[in-house]
Design a protein around this nucleic acid. Sequence first.
DNA 1: CGATTTGGGCTTTTT
DNA 2: GCCCAAATCG
Length: 906
Amino acid sequence: MPNYTPRQQEAISTLNRNLQIIACAGSGKTQVISQRIIEILKTGVHPSKIIAFTYTEKAAGELQARILKLCKEQLPDTQGIADMYVGTIHSWCLNALQEYKYEYQKFSVLDEIKLKLFVDKNFKQIGMQDLSMERFKDTGRFVALMSLLREAQFHNRDDVPPNLFEALHKYETVLRKHCYFDFTMIMSDAVHCLQSDENFRSKITRDIGYLIVDEYQDVNPVQESIVRELYNLGANICVVGDDDQTIFQWRGSHINYIQQFTTRYDNVHSVTLEDNFRSTNAVVDVAIKSITNNTVRLPKVMNAKGFQQYERGDILYNQFTSVADENAFIIEKINQLRGVAFKDKEDTTERGLNYSDMVVLVRKWKKAEAIVEAFTQAGIPFVITGINNLFQRLEVRASQAIFQYLYNQIDKGVLKDYWQNLSPLITDENLEKGVDFLDKHIANSNSYYERFDFQTFFTDFIDIIGVREDIFPSEEHPEAVGYSTAEVIFYNLGMFSKIIYDFETIYYKSDPLYKIATFLNFLTYSATDNYSEGWLNNTYKTPNAVQIMSIYQSKGLEFPVVFVPGLNKNYLPTKQPGGKQLWHHIDKVLIIDVDRYFPGEEDERRLMYVAITRSKKFLMISRAPDGRQQGKESIFGSEVRKSTYAFSSLDRDYSERAKLPPASSLEIANISLNFSLLKAFFDCPYRFKFESFYGFQSSFGARIGYGASIHHALMEIHREFLEGNIITKEQLPALLQKHLHFPYAIPTIEQSMSDKAEQAVNIYYDSNLNEFKNIEYAEQDIQLDLGDGILVNGKMDLIKKKNQDGTVEKTIIDFKSTEKAQEYLATIDQLQLYALGYKALTGENADFLEIYNLDKNEPYRTELSTKDLDTMKEKIRNSANDIRGNNLEKTCNDPTCACRFKTTKK
DNA sequence: CGATTTGGGCTTTTT
DNA sequence: GCCCAAATCG
């Protein structure tokens, strides 16, 4: 076991009481939580009894990787680790609802942009009109109001104007009718079930043991209710957080939850981790000089205990007369610090700092614009999320033009110009063919909706006109570090495909003329500020570039070099914005603790604290007067200056420091794959690149939902058998009815598919009834840890275990509802993935792999050879490394392959 | 020094 | 269209 401080040790070993860990910045809290989970496992608790909540998916990935690493070292024989839950509260709620209340299986979650589309489409039914809110104009406010009504707490609900809750009721009813959740509903439904659904409660109780809540300072009232209910059902609770880092209060988190935890829960032991291992004593001192000005905080200190050594000049606080000078200073320091010797850990060798070690933290995105401009001029590579320039790109304008042409807004010549400007290698001849294709589909009211499919229009058109990677420059794109111009264009085309996907999710079935008019409006008014350039979303790759991010986004991260520019009054702390329109619709006085929605100086100081504590060593704070509003120094500037380490120096150039060749940190990024991603990759690496890297989506179709409906029905049948509840043949129709969901089918198609599904399920039931007693697992989660930070997740349809001629025989089964027989061999090969997962789950080898065709009602089975498994393991590892390193095929030369846009077209 | 006019900006983000 | 902070007026 690694060395832990006495305090850390105390936290790790407190297992039989509820626990509050107040962890200051850089105190190794992820390590402590992970080790504590290992200690729980060591007592013999099964992994399924442990739940760990994190705030973001990213944090969940990191925590999971850490736990697996420790587990491998200290408990290598642990089985069923996939049954431990490590993830966000939202997805735990969604999982629980779908696992234990089968009718939720067919539900899906609308993200922000799809929800807006949904609200606008259904604005009459959902009660927007009743609140005198206008379609399109007030959508955002309506959605915010619906969230507030569910996430806030009211002094007395009876005082809230009834029309508000009536609108909420209508809104939720319409969402449910279409089998959609919004993000809040996932949690509020879960709370409701946890409080009043006895069957649900007993199933959760069976699985509950230990609950760990990370970043507890940022939970909101609904999330706190989840924690409270799990506690009531018998969970041992451990909350971890830092009240000084409560920064999301404007979306409902409240500092009281963590500060008063010990009085709100019974038998709580409290541990404070006060040692900061991340930063130099100087960074810690600056942070303390600022945060101690807050009055509302738990009493605690922060001690620098790390190995990073302060050297004079690591921390500068410079004031300039213009923003241009300030930005020039940042650029100068980036260039001077690049190559300065730096040690990541006490026991690693030194390396030269690189661009990717540096971050610029902004309070508002507007501030970033001038920095981006200056960086581009100076040739500093950078990445930024939060600025949505997608629609300024030529390839996106050209894609938009396809639909303008289909609605007769522009003529043929204009459309052709758009594409020819993009690349002179797009020939006139091909463009004519593309236009001919579009002419067959010009919008008119009698087109059959399934033939008026935007995704097909888009992908077919760019295919026909000959858009291929090799017609665009392969040199690095001037603004996208690590990506060629061709790749940037394809990423953005992929993003356009995603836009179509989002739109058609809501509007697929609409009347053609209405659909295209709405789409063009959506592109003009809504999509422009909701989609970023596609290449920015590549999660598999971290380029060597300076990151520009908001302070909020930087939570939980750390960097050797941190820039905090713009330390002006009215910027940090920010000026209170005027005219909060949401409050025109609901009276502030109705809401308990309404002040949290109006952050004040102490809230802003916590942001400043988060910004400072991201730094391991170098911290460059600066300011310059910026216009009338931001002419004066921020109050935080004078606080920071109280630290003797933060002084001004305009000519320090770090030439006295030891230099090494710039090299990025050697930590390999963790990669999380799932079985369907891997299957796609095995099928065709180029198509994988299209779908997973560039983001191209497939089109819908009237028949979508058939396979899923049957799948869900079989899951319920199998699961209930496992529970000892025999579903009778008479119960089948009602059971199936619960799961049928064909969102894009017209009534005739819906009827025929329902009949077909009923037939398939009945036949399956009749011919497999005798087999049900052999089911070992149904819809079982599995997880494969291949080391090197490669993690594969998946779900197996069915596992049977039966006694056959005196030996136990284990079969892994995958259901198929289409009859593409030629895919069988490819798929059965890939079922070896599941065999690996089965071994990780139970420690045993499976004997057979089976694909069960539900349409033909026939199984196709093959014997598993254990020597195949090592080959498969190696194959996955190589694939993961190819994906991580972007060593993907530039082309696909298999003429039978279904992938699109082959560089060499057969 | 208090009252009045003028000018500029209109977050932040997770699921 | 509205609100706040800075500038200017009296």
